[in-house]
Nucleic acid binder design. Structure first.
Lengths: 197, 197
DNA sequence: GGGTACATGTAATCAGTTACATGATTTA
DNA sequence: TAAATCATGTAACTGATTACATGTACCC
């Protein structure tokens, strides 16, 4: 079986716990759960559903009437595929796409010549840091709320993924706060060089 | 000006510091630098180059002879666009796609009924954790090497981005080590609940 | 000078996103 | 019952990836 994109396994995984769901319901689940770590727009769910159905990994039932709603359910073959994937070792690195860091990286080139930090760069970096702190604190708050919902069992994989999200956001906030504190000598300066475990 | 995908700004940003480069050279730069935080395959560079050239943000020169090599250089309009983007506030959240976490999340559904941790799940989680630790330690080692290259100025944005990478990998390693230590009560268990600042 | 590794480009395909259209349900 | 909101689907487009083809330099 040709291997599927990871988003397909998100669908399979959710259907494995839900037994059956509409794409819309899956979207809600993703939003509240794994979506914070592997998100994609709802419309993609239709494409995934089609693909998975073609492969016989799920079955789609359409309503006849107006909305022609789809109900999705995983098949035995789908479960097998999911299990196989869960057991497949992976050393694929995580992909991080962070627009804030990207902007930080290129700050110096936006301004005129010279490697040194101009006042303009400093200003821009400060603005960026403040904005990023706000962004990440907002997300942290959302995660904390998610941690409170009753179905979130402590010690479960779902809770662990969320925990990682919480720590990640905290890391980012700490990082940007350091930037705010010394915008001309960013984190990773002369002290605490790597190699000194 | 319609706004461009972030990868376009990677190209613009690099060209702004390099003055001129071939796509291949850009690829090398990305590999060593920002690529750890915003990567895409080399072939994409050709598409980006085309797009940017069409918009007049860079100029492309092609060799006449055999390889028909392209040399890219940023234009004044390109610099303006880059500057504008650098100053655009963004609250777009970072996207993290981590195949290890995704697998962890769905471990329970791979195995038979019941919410409780079966021995099989525990086994699978342990394997996953071990494998993830190895993966992230490998990447950490690469980052540490990158931190040593002479052009990597301490306190610079490039170094800061790398620093973030180092911390991120360390975070992941710590997380997975905790998993290894108590695979039946994953991080985010009863103690250290959020809300207790 | 033949093999190997590096450098370069393109086309075809697949994934992901945006924008839109419409059906159903609630509520004032 | 009109307006607002939630739920649902599709098509068109753009971005990203894979697979391939070929050129150039180096080195034994």
């Amino acid at each position: 079986m040709a291997d599927l994109p990871s988003s397909a396994y998100v669908v399979l995984g959710l259907l494995a716990e839900q037994e059956a769901a509409t794409p819309y319901q899956l979207d809600q689940l993703i939003l509240r759960g794994i979506g914070n770590f592997w998100s994609f727009p709802r419309s993609q769910l239709y494409a995934e559903a089609g693909r998975l159905a073609r492969h016989g990994l799920i079955i789609e039932q359409r309503e006849e009437s107006g909305r022609r709603r789809r109900t999705l359910a995983i098949t035995e073959a789908g479960r097998r595929q999911l299990r196989a994937w869960l057991e497949t070792p992976t050393d694929a690195p995580a992909e991080v796409h962070d627009p804030g860091v990207l902007r930080l990286y290129f700050q110096p080139v936006g301004h005129d010549r010279g490697e040194g930090h101009s006042a303009a760069v400093t200003q821009a970096v400060l603005r960026l840091a403040a904005e990023q702190i706000a962004t990440h604190e907002k997300l942290l708050a959302v995660y904390r709320q998610n941690a409170e919902v009753p179905t979130m069992r402590p010690g479960s994989p779902q809770r662990a993924a969320l925990e990682l999200g919480l720590r990640y956001e905290q890391l980012l906030i700490d990082f940007w706060k350091e930037v705010l504190d010394s915008p001309t000598n960013l984190p990773g300066g002369s002290f605490g060089r790597p190699g000194d475990e």
